[in-house]
Design a protein around this nucleic acid. Structure first.
Lengths: 229, 229
DNA sequence: CCAAAAGTGTTCTATGTACACCCATGC
DNA sequence: GCATGGGTGTACATAGAACACTTTTGG
């Protein structure tokens, strides 16, 4: 492949961007971060935070910078989701959207939130109209999140450093959209040896809850090992 | 986002390409399709089949066209794998590689193979030197294939339309890299109701093997439902 | 003492795993 | 008749699911 080939190929008129589906948890609901879309092109619609692709950085760095204004100094968990190249999503541009999905821990949400950019957190069941098929992006990101929750430890990325077992269970229930059995849930999480108890307690109504912490040395994934079917 | 933003962004000097990791099975080994890389830039190295991105088509169509010369009229199974944006993979270009992985059924392999392009099938354990980190692409594609084999019916994509249960089992064994128990394997596959027996038999040494066929109405995926851990 | 949430074990069922012999064909 | 791969069932171990009551705190 030569530079001539490059010119013949695809270096013209394609707008390469990154988009991030940033999830966070609040009041036992899943939220996603959106910004208002261009009023002229998509009146009344919102869009995912994004930024143009810069080849000077890795894709992940690019994606991280898209959401840096909203995450403060907390590092969000980031993972590449999919690349969408379909034309027709924008009236005058050929878009190539490399989409990441990201998880922001609950304590990061409440801390630094700069109001100099117009952004809002929307609960997943009350999304506004979305431009450029970003609704599809979000739907797919949610599927991936649900899926990953079942065989990896991503769930902890949505929680603060210290959390009670009930908080952890609620996280799972909210993301998966179903109730889980308390005793079974606790037994499995504890047997997995991925969290460790601390000496702290969460006070509130009822009996105080012991707080746990994710073990940084934990094995974060289990093999599915199911052998279709 | 406006057209001005687009120009400020990333419409210059980035070469967008598709690459396909095309797997096929032969003599109970997994093979991947490669073409010789540019002799000047990467002497002695090979690369994955690829083509420049055209925004007139969907990404999947683009990818499909990369391998069309080698698949004949057979449709290969195609799935987006990952997008690699790291600079430094090419001495003079900023590459953005959208990588697909693909499976070609064994009967497609033996039929039409046009020799007007220089390509070769390499067994996975004897890969040549690879340009532009394509070795990483292949490694990741293999991981994804192994993973999918355990919860979906992709395995059948590597087989011809009619196959014996032993052939199916060998496919699984080769991809996963381990031996499976014959009786357990058969029980599970048959209970899953994804294949149906035909009246045909495969002759050879020993007792003839009944041939089966994948049921097009089969449910091709099972939920992992394992709930970490 | 009452409300509210935390914490705790056992039984049953389903799924996965280990394992050895007879069968049908070609030579 | 023998070599070769095809085909079959059972017993045991492990993992998942269902289920109800006691404990600790604040008001």
């Amino acid at each position: 492949m030569t530079d001539a080939a490059a010119k013949a190929g695809s270096t013209t008129s394609i707008y390469i961007e990154l988009r991030v589906v940033l999830f966070s948890l609040r009041d036992n609901r899943l939220f996603v971060l959106l910004t208002p879309a261009d009023e002229q092109l998509f009146p009344g619609a919102w869009e995912l935070p994004g930024c143009p692709f810069s080849s000077r950085e890795s894709l992940e760095k690019n994606a991280s910078q898209c959401i840096a204004p909203f995450t403060g100094q907390h590092e969000a968990y980031l993972e590449q989701l999919y690349s969408y190249g379909d034309s027709g999503r924008h009236p005058s541009l050929d878009l190539l959207s490399i989409v990441y999905f990201a998880l922001l821990s609950a304590d990061a949400l409440s801390s630094g939130r700069p109001a100099d950019v117009d952004v809002r957190w929307f609960p997943l069941d009350q999304l506004p109209p979305l431009a450029m098929k970003h609704g599809d992006f979000i739907e797919y990101a949610l599927r991936r999140l649900r899926y990953k929750l079942e065989y990896s430890a991503v769930g902890f990325e949505l929680l603060p450093e210290y959390f009670s077992l009930s908080e952890l269970q609620h996280t799972y229930e909210v993301v998966l959209g179903e109730k889980l059995d308390k005793r079974n849930f606790r037994r499995r999480i504890l047997q997995a040896n991925v969290i460790e108890p601390t000496q702290q307690y969460r006070l509130g109504e009822g009996r105080p809850a012991r707080l746990y912490r994710y073990r940084p040395d934990a094995v974060a994934e289990v093999k599915a090992r199911r052998l279709f079917p």
